[in-house]
């Protein structure tokens, strides 16, 4: 890291301000308004699209390149367990243990 102690504080405060602004923008501009039905159809699909993107980019990519690793296997095992309706905490524990185990050998 090349930042000074004071610069890190600047970064933290700016990042917090940016996050507050982004979260506030939609509710401020569009709140309390009845939106047309096509809008709801788009919104309903937003969660699966964003969540899948978050999952695949954290499992199959590292920075700006595609890559897989021990965590890909760990998450894969957890995915099967989640599908079989195991509890989230159990799935996370198994994912971490599988990943750490593969990295240890």
């Amino acid at each position: 890291m090349t930042l000074t102690h004071a610069e890190v504080w600047v970064l933290i405060v700016c990042l917090a301000a940016m996050t507050v602004l982004i979260k506030a923008l939609g509710p401020v501009l569009l709140g309390g308004r009845q939106l047309p039905p096509w809008f709801s159809r788009v919104i309903v699909l937003m969660a699966p699209a964003l969540l899948t993107a978050l999952v695949v980019t954290s499992v199959f990519a590292s920075g700006r390149s595609w890559s897989v690793g021990a965590h890909t296997v760990g998450v894969g095992v957890a995915a099967v367990m989640l599908w079989r309706r195991c509890s989230l905490v159990l799935c996370v524990v198994v994912a971490v243990l599988v990943t750490a185990g593969l990295r240890a050998i």
Partner: peptide
């Protein structure tokens, strides 16, 4: 293996 937590969280 803590980097496996984040994807499982979103997967659920």
């Amino acid at each position: 293996g803590l980097d496996a937590i984040y994807p499982v969280f979103f997967l659920s």
